[in-house]
Design a protein around this nucleic acid. Structure first.
Lengths: 345, 345
DNA sequence: TTGAAAGCGATACCAT
DNA sequence: ATGGTATCGCTTTCAA
């Protein structure tokens, strides 16, 4: 079972050392920018490295340093919207960019089956594969999260955990964002404001609903439970949720994600109602698609790229300085007014 | 700079060996399912492993075996649609699923800047980080591809290279798919069939345009170059391309991706024309979104998930059996008739 | 400032 | 069938 590829090793550290007439230790020092290397020697070694195109073997380095230079992004099986909700593509992008900037490699762990999880998690949570883990937060008591918590590898939750756990996480202020969206609709004079929520098994879904409720409550308006329909963060889910809402004749709807809002707009258009005249719509996320809907979508912008970037920074901090005290980072949101809410611009 | 985490090592192979009263070599044999281990001893060792939750250190194993169990998926800087074209999310999904199935880990290399590429490629193409690379094919003479070709790591192109290179690749039959789409429109009686192409610097863009041309030519119809507008595989790009086509009064348009088709539909709707009555539309990809457009999109289905899965299989074959002869895998496509083309169903 | 040598934690060859 | 041990390629003490 030997590899069919030639053992074309463009050199190991000892080769470089020999060619430069120094010891491997010195080459290593040069490689790692240690001080205490005479400049003349440093230059000589660097030249040889340049000429030979030498690259240190990362497995060997990992073994010696107990660090791999890899961060893992873990998507539990229960997050089945990873590929249908464009939100995740953006988060992944933010994480990837930040990894590049910090000279880390990104490994993606996408679990589809329980089998996947059982097989991968143990190795993920031992030293030797990744230096740290970003876990996409999910339903209450998700097995992945529990196992990662028991493991030895530093980790950070992307998204507040549903249950109060003593762990580090990074999240956006979902309550505030949803509050902002709902207040905006109320201020525009809408009175039957409905909402299409995310899955109420997730903190994101729960928090955005809380913000909606809070806005109504603070204005002394009753919360009509009929006007609350649970969605699933997919376009289809938004479509069907809106179809259930239409007979109840709302004059506005706060949709907890732009993806669902696209579906909701479609449902409204199909029954011949007009946005924003008959029904005002506000979304959540400010994905690129929000600019291209008809009419363009008023929405809550969350700093998705920054979210990914900060996630990496916080995780690296945890790796450096230990898990205690738990880090809690909450990013703010911003209302982006376009046409779907009916605000005069 | 020592890790602030306790050296809580749940054990190394020697510990297991001691507890089981055998040698490390034997434990290793059990771990790797070697024959020649007495069943009684195998059970004893497995029990200890179970009890201690021991997991082998992957860095050490990589160093010893010269294999990391990681496959890399590389997206060159020039593929800036990675996050705006939902197509890539699906491909990534297919690759991820296949990696799981084959017990490999997936590392994602998303390059944004030349700097990213310069820094990451050298280490990517040396042994010790990944066992094999899937490179998203891109423009002619992309630097990433060139560097990967020079490197030591087995690789496979996702998408036919623009220039004829002696390398392995996997692709879908873009010429045939585009041909099929165009013929379909012609058979429905359309005579001014336009096309919105992909970037003509990519093989995907080129091939789909070729298929369009071929269909017209074979039917003895002239190719009106004005009816060919280059897009960029984004929704916005499709929108603007369609706006340029509308004054030329086409009665049909073959759009080289579903993402662009969504934009094209929007442009058509905005000027008050009807699909398919005034303009018939056929897309390409059959992404989930194709079912949700108004009207639902007739499109060319490519087996995206299978594409990713096959890519992994072919790459593993190359890793096992060497790069020669180059593997060329081309997957077929299928016309999916919905409403946007105006076919009576 | 530099070098020798002891790890790091597996695997796999060579004995037995 | 099992054990002893060299080996993978780098980092990092310790001594000089």
């Amino acid at each position: 079972m030997r590899s069919p590829f030639p053992p074309f090793c463009s050199g190991v550290i000892a080769d470089i050392a020999r060619k430069a007439g120094v010891s491997p230790a010195t080459v290593s020092r040069v490689l790692n920018n240690h001080p205490y290397v005479r400049d003349e020697i440093r230059q000589r070694v660097l030249k040889i490295i340049e000429e030979t195109g030498y690259q240190p073997n990362l497995a060997a380095r990992s073994l010696a340093t107990q660090r791999t230079g890899i961060l893992g992004f873990v998507i539990p099986r229960t997050v089945h919207t990873f590929f249908s909700d464009p939100y995740f593509a953006r988060v992944t992008e933010g994480i990837a960019r930040a990894c590049n900037a910090h000279d880390y490699t990104l490994s993606l762990f996408l679990f589809y089956t329980v089998e996947d999880e059982r097989r991968m998690i143990p190795r993920l949570t031992r030293k030797g594969l990744v230096d740290g883990i970003i876990v996409q937060s999910t339903h209450l008591q998700d097995e992945v999260l529990m196992r990662v918590m028991e493991g030895e590898v530093p980790f950070l939750l992307a998204g507040r955990p549903v249950a109060p756990l003593n762990v580090s996480y990074i999240d956006v202020d979902n309550v505030a964002g949803a509050y902002q969206a709902t207040v905006h609709l109320l201020q525009l004079g809408r009175r039957r404001v409905a909402t299409i929520t995310g899955p109420l098994t997730t903190s994101t879904g729960i928090d955005r609903l809380d913000g909606y409720r809070k806005a109504l409550r603070e204005r002394g308006l009753p919360v009509d439970e009929q006007l609350i329909v649970e969605g699933d963060f997919t376009e289809m889910g938004g479509y069907y949720a809106m179809r259930r809402l239409l007979p109840l004749d709302p004059d506005a709807v706060f949709v907890a994600s732009d993806g669902m809002a696209v579906g909701a707009l479609r449902a409204i258009r199909e029954v011949g109602k007009r946005v924003p005249r008959d029904i005002a719509v506000v979304g959540y996320d400010d994905l690129p698609i929000a600019q291209s809907t008809t009419p363009p979508l008023t929405t809550i912008r969350q700093p998705i790229l920054r979210f990914g970037a900060r996630a990496v920074e916080v995780l690296l901090d945890i790796i450096e300085n230990g898990p205690t005290p738990p880090r809690r980072v909450v990013l703010g949101t911003e209302l982006v007014v376009r046409s779907s809410c009916g605000a005069t611009i």
